[in-house]
Design a protein around this nucleic acid. Structure first.
Length: 430
RNA sequence: GGACGGGUGGCCGAGUGGCUAAAGGCAGCAGACUGUAAAUCUGCCGCCCCUUGCGGGCUACGGAGGUUCGAAUCCUCCCCCGUCCA
């Protein structure tokens, strides 16, 4: 089953569209927000909770999983889905963002990026080919080319050089991916021939992996009735889609050129990278506009690393289908909670005796059950539960907002939704 | 009764004559966070003043006196705490 994207509805008043991404691990409704699970874990959130929140697509990270536990380990254990017990779709980032965020412990050259491991200081090397090799081993449904995420501000000259490098890396990433894909297909054909067997689903289906598990433990829970991983699709390059990434700093001409040259490579989807790195919001939107004008209608567009709730609507309005961001999860852990009436700093003294739910208008399990006073107490006491509950709520807020956005596009009420959200955020906390 | 050791800002705890409104930690208060080196980080944290700048005033190192140009730091007495000996 290969990757496919279809558009199912459009907003008459903007570029916004509702779509569906079909992956080997389920369909994904777009516009979609991906919770970030860098190290194969959305920090503090058990997978069943993520399923309850109806997260359909998670993001994990090549760089982190390459360092620990190592992509070979994950491959051996049946791929990232099985390893992290996540039966739904996954996207892995290539490590390009670490080129940006680990500025002080890395050097970039033509060949790739040299890192000093943030775990033990050991020298590490990530090239476009390596990034693909790791991502193929991990087996996420959507994978990304290695890119250089540029700092803001940068000169036109620097942005061009960086963009050129990103383009060369995109080409190399794609070639590596095609090599590995065809190699894997050839392998599969050969093994079928030599075994003299007709291809059977069980050959690559989870049950065969479960069989491996059975041999060592004598028991495989995967085989139990109704186990979430029971119906897990086989991992493999055949079902992976490699996305290209548009760079070009904050320069419209570079962004346009970058798109044009990426289109020649014909990726199944395109990401906008290097945005929300400290520039004014208007600039991010402008870059998004000039980029998306040049992108084909029928391919998904992914803005990497955004944003605040209102940003999500703004990007969707501009024709963006996919976004991811650490804000709802990281800020949750830091006591910064998104509500229908604006941001709540739950650690603030004013909530010490507040018996009300965090958000009166929220249908999430946390708002259903717990008081602000209790949430504040959990933060104050340094209880682990604080992180889980706060993350649960914030992710619910984000994922629910995406549902509302999709509905609004279908009903042509995206503007009203934006106004509503703006008014609510501007409104004083009750 | 005697011998030592000790009493420092909400708590713990440095500091043994000026560079000390007094290190550091905790607690407290506020803030930041955008493809996660983040359960992290930053600022404030005696009181009162122009919210102006390494600004001004006041009060502070158990208590009361004293020595000194100058004391949390030295001396005297007192109070309290701890350990040990009777």
């Amino acid at each position: 089953m290969s990757f496919r994207f279809e558009i199912v509805a459009r907003d008459p008043r903007s570029r916004a569209r509702v779509g569906r991404l079909y992956t080997a691990h389920g369909a994904v409704d777009t516009p979609v927000f991906m919770p970030v699970g860098t190290a194969a874990s959305v920090k503090s959130m058990p997978q069943p909770l993520l399923e309850q929140l109806d997260a359909q697509l998670l993001l994990a990270n090549t760089y982190h999983l390459f360092l620990r536990p190592g992509h070979e380990v994950i491959r051996e254990l049946g791929g990232l889905h099985r390893f992290m017990a996540w039966p739904r779709a996954l996207l892995t980032d290539s490590g390009g963002f670490q080129v940006f965020s680990m500025n002080s412990i890395r050097t970039v050259n033509e060949e790739g990026v040299r890192f000093r491991s943030h775990l033990d200081g050991s020298p590490q090397f990530l090239s476009p080919e390596k990034a693909i090799e790791v991502q193929v081993a991990l087996g996420a449904d959507l994978i990304m080319v290695l890119d250089e995420c540029l700092h803001y501000p940068s000169t036109h000259e620097k942005a061009r050089r960086s963009m050129e490098l990103t383009l060369r890396w995109a080409r190399r990433s794609q070639e590596a991916f095609q090599r590995m894909t065809s190699a894997a297909k050839a392998d599969k054909r050969k093994s079928r021939r030599t075994a003299g067997l007709k291809p059977r689903p069980s050959q690559t289906a989870p049950s065969s992996r479960a069989g491996i598990a059975s041999e060592s433990t004598g028991f495989s829970p995967y085989e139990s009735e109704g186990h979430p991983l029971g119906a897990l699709a086989p991992e493999g390059t055949a079902s992976q889609a490699l996305f290209g990434i548009v760079q070009g700093g904050m320069f419209a001409d570079l962004r346009r050129e970058c798109v044009a040259r990426l289109l020649e490579m014909d990726f199944p989807g395109y990401a906008l990278g290097g945005l929300a790195v400290g520039e004014p919001a208007a600039l991010s939107y402008e870059m998004t506009d000039v980029t998306i004008e040049k992108l084909p209608e029928d391919k998904p567009r992914y803005v990497m690393g955004v944003g605040y709730p209102l940003d999500l609507i703004e990007y969707v309005r501009r024709g963006v289908d996919m976004m991811d961001c650490v804000l709802p999860t990281r800020n949750a852990r830091n006591g910064y909670l998104f509500t229908s009436t604006g941001v709540v700093h739950i650690r603030n003294a004013q909530y010490a005796r507040d018996p009300r739910p965090l958000d009166q208008n929220c249908a999430c399990a946390v708002c259903w059950r717990y008081s602000r006073a209790y949430l504040r107490h959990l933060f104050n006491a340094g209880e682990i539960l604080a992180a889980t509950l706060a993350t649960h709520h914030n992710l619910h807020f984000y994922l629910d907002l995406m549902r509302r956005i999709r509905t609004a596009i279908r009903t042509g009420t995206l503007d009203q939704l934006a106004d509503q959200l703006r008014a609510a955020e501007a409104g004083q906390e009750v």
